[in-house]
Nucleic acid binder design. Structure first.
Lengths: 241, 241
DNA sequence: AAGTGGTCTAGACCACGTT
DNA sequence: ACGTGGTCTAGACCACTTG
């Protein structure tokens, strides 16, 4: 809650870019909590790229446009839409209960029922993205048309109490199938940016398999990343020559 | 150090995928530290996608191949090369001191000297990526050819004591300039995946501007992301109609 | 010297899952 | 009932930056 409160204040420029937040000590008094609690909040903002903590000086508000296009995380299209104020529209092309194709089977055991959902995303009236989702049927038992048109994540989290936890994404460039090419009004070689996602719940069970086909001329992915020194320092020892 | 130690044990399957780590209490005893310290370590592993913490049960080791292609962070090509055991090679095409083109000026004040560096990355003998870097000249005063061929990050961090902190990345698909097209042996429409990065030091000063041109057929970006609920909940209030 | 963030501690209480 | 992780506390000492 503290992190969110500060994030909102940064968003509204109450804490302006290039200025320092109140010191951790002052934030303790402001929120009436201990310092470690404040520090955990600031750590979240640091990880998101909203601030940069500088030893001996303070927590500097960054002016990176983290609110303009926060795609990197697991952000649903609807949320993006709200945040950006784009003139975006979602058209549900298909919604039916089927089986997950074995070609997509990611270590899935045999036949796996799922809701298949195909949605076309339009921005300013132009087709931009075609999403194909499989929502595995345990755990997703029902999927109202309204949820598909609105926001699946809002439905799952708020209505059903699902705890969506993490996702893996893979971005490649591929030649689009004819059906996709048609729906996206593609010309030329028919190359699309393909974003494949696997999304998991807090109990580590897989519940969503997505293929997102993006028009290459409209595709833009922005990312914020902090330098980690955990995995990279585990260098292989080279044999002594 | 604790996070790294556990990460290595996960990598070497001492802690196997789909099993639980020792409980936080046991890890306290193992490392002789307090619980909060263990928890901070586990939080790092959680953020990296190595484990999933489950309340009431324990910390589950995930079997996502986080060691096979950890591109998402700020990982230098050399590090990737080591991690993957790919037959990769870097050819330095150019290294000279110039000015940053004003077209790239990202709020840079006037004339900004920098080292321009062009490198071709070959994988299994095939050109795969063309990197064009500008390393701003304060703070980078010298740039030995050897560092460019080996690893710039290792040089900056280990030799010069730089603290590389974070980067923004932007991925788009564009038509490659003729010079790039040639060096990458591109045919057809000459589309490339363009990854633009701005990399910053811990004091928030910009020091590197990179454009990476990837052959679209070789490009692959994988990402691990956890669901955040800080930015997304700051919904705009809709006007009451 | 004073203020800042970085790290750690030894305890506490809670919520969740399993037995 | 017990063990697990989730959260918080009130203090401590350190390292860095600035006046």
């Amino acid at each position: 809650m503290i992190a969110q409160d500060i994030a909102i204040k940064i968003k509204h420029k109450i804490y302006a870019p290039q200025t320092f937040l109140p010191s951790e000590h002052k934030l303790c008094e402001l929120y009436g909590t201990s310092r470690e609690t404040i520090r955990k909040s600031l750590e979240q903002l640091n990880e998101l790229g909203l601030i940069q903590k500088i030893k001996g000086r303070g927590s500097l508000v960054l002016n990176l446009q983290r609110f303009t296009f926060p795609i990197s995380g697991i952000t649903s299209f609807k949320e993006l839409n709200q945040t950006l104020g784009m003139h975006a529209k979602t058209v549900v092309l298909q919604l039916e209960k089927t089986m997950v194709p074995t070609s997509l089977a990611v270590g899935l055991s045999n036949e796996q029922p799922a809701f298949f959902l195909e949605r076309l995303r339009l921005i300013d009236g132009e087709p931009d993205v075609l999403d194909r989702d499989y929502l595995l049927s345990p755990p997703v038992e029902k999927l109202p048309y309204q949820a598909a048109e609105d926001s699946i994540y809002a439905y799952l989290e708020e209505e059903l109490g699902f705890k969506i936890s993490y996702a893996t994404k893979e971005i490649t460039v591929e030649s689009a199938p004819a059906a996709v090419r048609e729906k996206l009004n593609l010309s030329g070689e028919g190359l699309v940016v393909l974003v494949r996602s696997l999304t998991y719940l807090a109990d580590t069970s897989l519940f969503q398999i997505t293929a997102s086909y993006h028009r290459p001329d409209k595709f833009k992915f922005t990312d914020f990343a902090r330098r980690k020194r955990i995995l990279t320092h585990t260098k292989e020892r080279k044999p002594q020559l």
